[in-house]
Design a protein around this nucleic acid. Sequence first.
DNA 1: GACACCAAATAACACTGTAAAGTATATTGA
DNA 2: TCAATATACTTTACAGTGTTATTTGGTGTC
Lengths: 219, 219
Amino acid sequence: MSSATLTRQERIKQRSAERRERSRQKTRQAILEAAIRMFEREGYEGFSLRQVAENIGYTPTTIYLYFKDKDDLLFAVCSQGFTEFNQALQAAYAAHSNPLERLKALGWAYLEFGLSHPLHYQMMFMQRAEWVTKATNTKGDTEGANAYIIQMNAVIEAMKAGVIRMGDPIETTNLIWSGIHGIVSLALSMKGIVPKWEESEVRRLVEDYFQMLTRGLQP
Amino acid sequence: MSSATLTRQERIKQRSAERRERSRQKTRQAILEAAIRMFEREGYEGFSLRQVAENIGYTPTTIYLYFKDKDDLLFAVCSQGFTEFNQALQAAYAAHSNPLERLKALGWAYLEFGLSHPLHYQMMFMQRAEWVTKATNTKGDTEGANAYIIQMNAVIEAMKAGVIRMGDPIETTNLIWSGIHGIVSLALSMKGIVPKWEESEVRRLVEDYFQMLTRGLQP
DNA sequence: GACACCAAATAACACTGTAAAGTATATTGA
DNA sequence: TCAATATACTTTACAGTGTTATTTGGTGTC
């Protein structure tokens, strides 16, 4: 509507600005993708700005034109992990209608994410767990379903269905979440070090946990 | 017996060597204590060899005469945390004779250690959890009661007493341990960030957990 | 007193993140 | 088309990190 009132020069200027902005987002994305590759190879401690820069043929300082500092870039990497995590849990939620099955499916999806993205999981929930809230706030409402909300909804539904006893939804969600997180985080830490924490054993542990949970939270 | 066969010179030489060794252990201890202070102030990421050295008036390289590298010193710091942790759990164990009470007391002691030694806990069980086994192996048999064994014993006793159902002791111990660890680690991560994870809430969560556990693991 | 040993310090290397200043290239307005 | 300007990127530099090889200075031994 307002474009009709613009002169040719103004229109050109605007399109040019848009084009530059696109280009800017493109190189920003290139940096981010390189950072993700880097992170998935080196992990949290080995992650280095200079290596990321070298990897895509930029000078280290160039990164600062697109990200505030190392933490900002690392948060962007983390953030990408959160959207993937959210999607995984969203899918697990959508795949079942039975409240109890949903609850279990969420647990399994949680475990699966952790086992298949160990470095991401460790950053997201162990090294920089503060970012959990920051990520959900930043992501905007469009993203919608964040993992915690999904889990809490599943808990609420399970309560309503009489599968688990009534109680503060947040408290109950935190309780259930803690258990799974405990298993997953220890599994990642102990993998390859303590025999009892190999993948098959971990799955059995999750089964045990569900059993304890359903019995223990029975109405 | 063999000292009788030594000449005076040999005896002097030996005592001299002992004295030097004592002095050596003393400065080693001084470095370690400085490192612990440093760590408790700066945490895992902020911990720096050069700062430790400066703190006790040594050159950074001197530390390498007493510790293999940064990791070695950090492990020593960690190790001290493990002995304190073990003692805390040992005390909790000894303070009760009722199997269920023992189990709960161990959980509370676990939580208490985490809340009162957050930086140590994070290194011991989150950043460098691989060291859990290394620590128990290194410590020697004299140290005796390591926390995991204590917990497993409590589990076994609870099984025998019919408080919780029979099962693989290791598996059950891991299950219980995971839950507590999940709560404690999330509590430390979320403290001061997410309101629902303040100390009082965390204690309530542990209570909930015990309730779920005793019901869920009922024979 | 000459010698060997040993704790500690110096000097140096290869890294790290980050800030300030400089340099082309591209875009704009006349 | 040309000078001014804005943008993208590099160069340079600083302060810090862990770590190794070399050198110093004092101590105990013969």
